[in-house]
Measured scan of single mutants.
Amino acid sequence: MGFKLLSKLLVYLTASIMAIASPLAFSVDSSGEYPTVSEIPVGEVRLYQIADGVWSHIATQSFDGAVYPSNGLIVRDGDELLLIDTAWGAKNTAALLAEIEKQIGLPVTRAVSTHFHDDRVGGVDVLRAAGVATYASPSTRRLAEVEGNEIPTHSLEGLSSSGDAVRFGPVELFYPGAAHSTDNLIVYVPSASVLYGGCAIYELSRTSAGNVADADLAEWPTSIERIQQHYPEAQFVIPGHGLPGGLDLLKHTTNVVKAHTNRSVVE
């Protein structure tokens, strides 16, 4: 069995187990497998329904001669939608809004960016022009300005110390501490036991640490421990890039980060 097929099978099995364990909360999309990078042309966006009122959005972007996937989250909030992270750029984010209108038909009224990198804030200006209120932590807003990236308009308070959590509509926002970046936030959907790890969490097929220019490698494993301790009931975990899975993604990420750190020390 090929690795790609095995990865998709694991996603399907995880979703099936969740649907059985929580039949009222989960209505997993039966329309197909989780979209992969090879299936999404740059400039297009796919939506994948995880649970009743919960979707991931998947886009792709060219970077350094390669094409990478990027995940975000959409959560229903009454007759409105909360968006977590842009679709990595203005063109993708405009396509995301169009796809949401086509498939869901509810307005996106608020959006949260989970850290300051372009795959999370690139497209904020498109959201703002569409009347979406954009939010991020003060740290993310400051770092985005320093980096020359787009800056969300509103500040999220109460997320300055490791372990801080605040309720934001249908989700809980959690600051686990520094990891992929010093400002990275985690998003949890309690009604569906869905954990969105953003770039602080890796997919299972990833074996290298990737972009760690703004990471705190020493603190990252401790931050992941905080996530595990705060959300032990999480059933569906979405990484910032690639295929979702279960809580095993947290341990896998820790292993990859520690291996990278150990290699760096040896070198």
Rank of each mutant, 00 (worst) to 15 (best):
L127H: 02
S27Y: 06
S161Q: 14
P239F: 00
T93W: 00
I238W: 05
T60P: 05
L82Q: 05
Q61Y: 10
Y175N: 06
S205C: 04
V37R: 09
G105I: 07
D79Q: 12
G123K: 03
V257H: 04
G32H: 05
T114K: 01
H230E: 10
A178Y: 06
G2I: 05
E225R: 11
H154P: 04
T153M: 07
F236P: 03
E147D: 12
R226F: 13
S16H: 05
V67K: 15
A15C: 08
K258F: 05
G131I: 04
L249T: 03
A129W: 11
S62N: 14
G210R: 07
S223Q: 03
G123N: 04
G242D: 03
T207W: 08
F116A: 15
K102D: 12
N184Q: 10
V189M: 05
N149E: 11
P41M: 12
A200T: 10
G240M: 03
E33C: 14
F3Y: 05
N71W: 02
A200D: 02
T254L: 13
L81F: 01
S70Y: 04
S191N: 05
G65W: 10
I40Q: 09
N149G: 13
I50N: 05
E150Y: 12
G242I: 02
V124G: 07
A98E: 13
R263L: 10
S31R: 13
P221E: 09
G53T: 14
H115S: 00
D119G: 02
I84P: 02
A21G: 10
D183T: 00
A200L: 06
P176A: 06
N92F: 00
V256T: 14
I201N: 03
V42C: 08
Q235V: 06
D214W: 09
D216W: 10
I20K: 07
E233T: 13
H241K: 00
Y196F: 06
N149Y: 12
D164T: 09
G197V: 07
T60D: 05
G163S: 08
E219N: 05
G131H: 05
I238L: 07
F236A: 12
G245E: 03
L10D: 06
Q49D: 08
T60A: 10
V126S: 12
E99F: 15
I201Q: 01
A215R: 05
M1L: 04
L5M: 05
S208F: 06
S7E: 13
A213T: 09
I58P: 02
L82P: 04
E219C: 04
R206W: 07
G72F: 03
L217V: 12
L96Q: 03
T134W: 03
D118L: 06
N184R: 02
A178K: 11
L81Y: 01
A111Q: 12
S155V: 15
G148F: 12
E80M: 05
P239V: 06
V194I: 09
A90M: 12
H57E: 01
A213W: 08
P170Q: 06
P35K: 08
A95H: 15
H180I: 00
V265D: 08
P152T: 10
Y196H: 14
V256S: 05
P107C: 04
L204H: 14
P190W: 05
K8V: 09
G169D: 04
V42F: 15
R206C: 13
G177N: 00
Q235T: 06
W220T: 00
S155K: 06
E267P: 14
S38M: 15
P69E: 11
L82V: 13
V257K: 02
P23I: 14
A90F: 14
S56D: 13
S264M: 12
V187D: 03
S27R: 10
A130R: 14
Y196W: 05
T207F: 06
K251E: 08
L82F: 12
G242K: 03
L185W: 01
L173D: 00
G122H: 08
